[in-house]
Design a protein around this nucleic acid. Structure first.
Lengths: 347, 347
DNA sequence: GCGGTTAACTTAAGCGGTTAACAAGCCCTC
DNA sequence: GAGGGCTTGTTAACCGCTTAAGTTAACCGC
């Protein structure tokens, strides 16, 4: 029978394998009650000198509070659930990365889940996150006006970031002024002489009166141009296929307005396949300003919303909501800034 | 004094606000002990009919086990800590998204942290993840051979994915055959007539004998070409600056080999600024095959490692390690596939 | 018909913290 | 000098679940 051991050899004097030091051990070492230690480590109710003594002992023993136990007792994990609408979208990947960084800087963890563009899944994942006891929920381009979100918002603070001017009760919102963005783009294209525009929208089951769609319709009517909405997956391969159909149609529109830069990349790919030159044979406008957009040929004309500030504000609102702080503005409106580059031209 | 209530109005008959149903309540409803219910819900030790009865009651009461309490009692959260080397790298963003999906499909959550390219931070974050009690740690392009990783691997299974042929004890590895990839690229460039190549590597404090660097040196010697290693940040703006310096130098190399596609985008941007044409004035090769790489002009010649399989294998190894299963191959070697496109040309 | 299994539950002791409630000591005040 | 109010601690009750160990009662072979 082979010698059993729970781990590899260990130098004498080192801490036991994966046995963490507990609060009780610190209490015993200091001759205090566990309660006193618990308070001391969080700087409450105890004298300066006791606090010092406890801290010292804790440090010596290498004590680190167990987040799970703490969560069970206190009701708060230090995790924020982050629900991404669709991580196939490169810009959302960027956003999630930025949000993760922001939260981590405040000693919180982002538990990021990807709804993959499916609204039903969004709600299911939101419930999973709630059940995971995250302290707050940060939902990205998601539409939390659906039935069922109330139950989520009841249980924990929800911060929305995206285009949803949702009626649902949220603890904060960072919203893109989509109407302004859409107006700006369509006016821009109109000014360049375009009269027929294809609008590539993310595929989501057609809620008939989705705000963005409505804005497009209104702006188109106002400007007197024809805008056709075409749903399109964010994944490049599929987006390329859809874009291909759009470009290959008979009498294709002169311009394609994409609701995300990722979709625009699909148009670039499709154009290349069809030997069309973006910025000459067809105009393309994106909607995110992803870093690589400026590397394309021609550089993609798009709408910048200020990703860094969005991530920072979202994190700030979320943390404030968790801590129950009052914030001056619970609703941050992001103004669009057109990044005019070479992909849209006069027709 | 205003009326206080804990939540918004609620229809009579609906469940109480954010009070979850507990195991005890199900136990009372069925007249069983909490233990019996606990067992029943996990299908152990109980009769078929009791199990059925419990399931029904649980469903009716809308019972959902509290993951925190479960974690405290059982010692396992259903979270996998995922440590990304640098999320500025677009390919790593893709990888993280894919890993997140894979794990979620298996009812586990990915707790993703970004080391931002800093090796010291890597270890610190790994410790944080361990303290968060994740069931396993999945480390992406990270070098776990450093001092201190042993303490991590002692406490939980560690799966490595990346180029690290690390000596540290891991529960599994998905490794890119970097030597093969580097050889392939340099041979390819050599075959095109290039004799001086700049190699853009991610900035990490210079561990003098990092494997990849060594491979470059060896391959260069063998082929008789001169390869200059230049560290470069993954963020596009900074990468562009570095690339700019590389391209502007006097007697610049004829080809730039980038250790990630993100770095290559920087070269494209720098080339455009300098009015150089990639694929004519300078050859560029990437190393990841990020989706957008094929959208660039010219499409980026790069090395594909099969992201989807990597993510799937990494998730599989991780789950296997958690469940203590034996796996046939604990070490998956990913072979490079050159995606030859238009960015590297004969000189 | 009797010890030995086994199936089906129950009991109860945690897991490692938090936190309300109470107690002791000390200083003031009236 | 009794009562009031701090400050500093302690006690003990959770938080909601898991699980080792114990209890019945039915079943079984001989």
């Amino acid at each position: 029978m082979p010698t059993m051991r729970t781990g590899p050899g260990r130098l004498p004097g080192m801490a036991r394998p994966s046995k963490r030091t507990t609060l009780r051990e610190v209490a015993e070492a200091t001759g205090l009650s566990t309660a006193a230690v618990s308070y001391a480590l969080r700087g409450k109710h105890v004298s300066k000198e006791t606090e010092e003594r406890v801290r010292k002992a804790a440090a010596e023993l290498g004590y680190e509070a167990d987040p799970i136990a703490r969560a069970l007792a206190s009701g708060r994990t230090s995790m924020v659930g982050v629900l991404a609408g669709d991580l196939q979208d490169l810009w959302q990947q960027q956003l999630m990365a930025a949000i993760g960084r922001e939260l981590l800087a405040g000693d919180r963890y982002a538990l990021i889940l990807d709804a993959g563009g499916d609204p039903d899944r969004e709600l299911a994942l939101a419930k999973q996150l709630r059940d995971q006891r995250v302290d707050a929920l940060l939902v990205s381009p998601v539409n939390p006006s659906a039935e069922g979100w109330a139950a989520i918002a009841d249980a924990l603070p929800v911060v929305a970031v995206g285009d949803s001017l949702s009626a649902a009760r949220t603890a904060g919102q960072v919203i893109f002024d989509n109407r302004a963005g859409i107006d700006a783009v369509l006016e821009y294209l109109h000014g360049l002489g375009h009269r027929r525009v294809t609008v590539l929208t993310p595929t989501r089951p057609s809620t008939p009166d989705r705000p963005a769609d409505v804005y497009v319709g209104e702006a188109a009517d106002r400007l007197g141009l024809r805008a056709e909405l075409v749903p399109c997956p964010q994944e490049l391969g599929e987006a390329t296929l859809v874009a291909r159909r759009v470009l290959d149609g008979e009498r294709p529109a002169t311009a394609v307005f994409c609701f995300s830069d990722s979709l625009a990349y699909g148009v670039y790919a499709a154009a290349a396949e069809a030997s069309l030159e973006v910025g000459r044979d067809v105009s393309v406008v994106g909607f995110d300003d992803h870093p690589v957009s400026r590397v394309l040929t021609p550089p993609l004309t798009t709408v910048d919303w200020g990703l860094a500030e969005i991530a920072a504000e979202a994190a700030r609102l979320t943390v404030a909501a968790i801590e129950g702080k009052r914030v001056r503005k619970k609703r941050i409106l992001c103004a669009p800034r057109m990044s005019e580059r070479g992909s849209a031209v006069r027709v």
